[in-house]
Design a protein around this nucleic acid. Structure first.
Lengths: 145, 145
DNA sequence: GAATGTATGTTAGAGCTCTAATGGATGCAA
DNA sequence: TTGCATCCATTAGAGCTCTAACATACATTC
């Protein structure tokens, strides 16, 4: 006896969309040679220079150790710099380097292209509906936990 | 100049819903001590005993090396067994063990509970709408690539 | 001043994920 | 029979992700 068919599970469809999104963004980010999480971090760093890694992790929706991994790779590539905070000695301020900004802008062009193509597939009403329904998903699922 | 606000990006909302889904399922799967990908593999294995790893990978929407990793962990826990195919000597037939079936059923109970709670947050019409909109997302994004 | 609380950063370990490359086996066609 | 195409399996390497644990620094409170 099958408990619940995959096509009936809303989660299956969410996962599929997310997978397609990740694949499309990854392809679009290829010219900039960054991953999706790296791009997300670079984008927030451009908007909030000097932010702490923990705060950046919250913005990106990942845990601090995860962000640590991402930042480590960005640092090794010279796209960011990390300097100790003036009086909060335990805090590292993270900033884009010039090259980091350039890479971010290249990556952003690709990412926005994907988002625009995605948005173009919906009417304004449908887009609002989709966002509202997805929001309710997240809300219900977070409450479940 | 900001290229596109995060809240305007449909992708942001898809990602958020997927993250919440993953977290909720992970919590629901804790009693069975399996991960979401492991559960997905077990569920398909129950329905298609003796399936090859590559075919299972396709069903689960991952690559063969990824499925290899998942199966390796399941095998080490004794939840599956892999035997050479009768004449296709290069093919390994994968099946649930008795313990694997028991774990799958325990995991399934948790997963279905999450799916039911999720479905309960929507009317039948909304559910159909959400699935249709997500389907269009996947379609457009796959075409992008 | 000392204890508590909160926030940050980091390491360790397990697991998933991909691309790329390699090796083996089968089946079909020239 | 030989060669080609196809499928399966696996390894290597890079990267993301989480939980758990620990260390540090600052702030508040007693």
């Amino acid at each position: 006896m099958t408990s619940m068919a995959p096509e009936e599970r809303i989660g299956s469809h969410v996962k599929r969309a997310e997978q397609a999104l990740l694949a499309a963004k990854n392809a679009a980010l290829k010219p900039a040679a960054v991953t999706v999480p790296q791009y997300a971090a670079l984008l927030w760093l451009a908007e909030k220079p000097g932010i702490s890694a923990a705060a950046l992790a919250r913005l990106c929706g990942v845990t601090p150790p995860t962000m640590n991994t991402v930042l480590k790779n960005l640092h090794e590539r010279g796209l960011i710099e990390r300097t100790p905070h003036e009086w909060h000695r335990n805090v590292l301020e993270t900033r884009l380097t010039d090259e980091g900004r350039a890479v971010m802008e290249l990556a952003d062009a690709g990412a926005v292209r994907v988002e625009r193509a995605l948005a173009a597939a919906f009417t304004e009403e449908e887009r609002a509906q989709l966002i509202a329904l997805l929001g309710r998903c997240a809300e219900v699922l977070d409450a479940q936990r």
